[in-house]
Structures are given as C-alpha cells and as structure tokens.
C-alpha cells in the first residue's frame, strides 16, 4: 500500500487498482470544524482534477478534486451523520471515497509523505 499527496491537500492510498481518497490533516486543520461533506454517487466517472466532493465548515466551502481519474466505487456514508470524523481522523476513518483507478501512472507525479510534509512547511 502506498500513500501519495497532492498540492491541493488530498491524500490517496492505493492498493491494487483501488484508491482511497481523503483530505490531509493539514487541510482538516485549516478548514476548522467540518460540518458537512458532499460526496459523489457511486459509479460517477471522474477525471483527474474534476470536482469530486465538497467539504464545508461553518464559514467556508472547499471543493475536493479527484487526485486521479477513476470510477467512484464507494462513498464514506459514515460522514453523513458524523462529519466531525474528518477533523478527528482525516487520514483514517475520515476518508471520502474509494475509486477504481483507470490510470495508475498519474500517481507517479504525486508527492510522498516526506515531500508533502516539506511542501506544507513552506506554506
């Protein structure tokens, strides 16, 4: 299992042809208290960079972009009743969607954990 990061503060955990996508701890902290996550329906076909989800705090709404192209297999329905999970465990139980990835080479250009850490330190 490899975990990769984007400059838009999404993380992607890949196992086989399945990717789990969420937002990073850094992003969750910046947003403040998450109050709602709008998730895509199963089967939606997203290209890399498409709007995949929306994450809302009280005074802000941020689009979450598909870090890789693929088809949505599952959305994290737990977030519907408990959006605070995104704050409590952003890179674990607070995942957003599972996707069937169509182009694994897209992962190559993304940051690993160390590179992302350095990236955030510069912000």
């Amino acid at each position: 299992m490899t975990v990769k990061y984007t400059e838009d503060h999404e993380w992607v955990s890949v196992e086989g042809d399945t990717a789990i996508v969420g937002i990073t701890s850094y992003a969750a902290e910046q947003l403040g208290d998450v109050v709602f996550v709008e998730l895509p329906e199963e089967g939606r076909n997203s290209n890399k960079g498409d709007e995949l989800a929306v994450v809302e705090s009280v005074k802000a709404a941020s689009d979450v972009y598909a870090p890789v192209s693929g088809i949505v297999k599952e959305a994290n329905s737990e977030l519907e009743g408990a959006p605070e999970t995104v704050n409590q465990d952003p890179e674990g139980k607070g995942w957003f969607v599972k996707m069937l990835i169509t182009d694994p080479t897209q992962l190559d250009a993304m940051m690993d954990a160390d590179a992302y850490k350095a990236f955030c330190a510069d912000l």
Binding site: V35, F36, E56, S57, V58, K59, A60, A61
Partner: peptide, 12 residues
Amino acid sequence: LSTREQHIRRDK
C-alpha cells in the same frame, strides 16, 4: 447552512 449562500459560495 450558510455555505449554500452567495457571501460564502459566491459563483457556486
């Protein structure tokens, strides 16, 4: 639920 509204979501 103000994130629906213009002062936060602007063109969306």
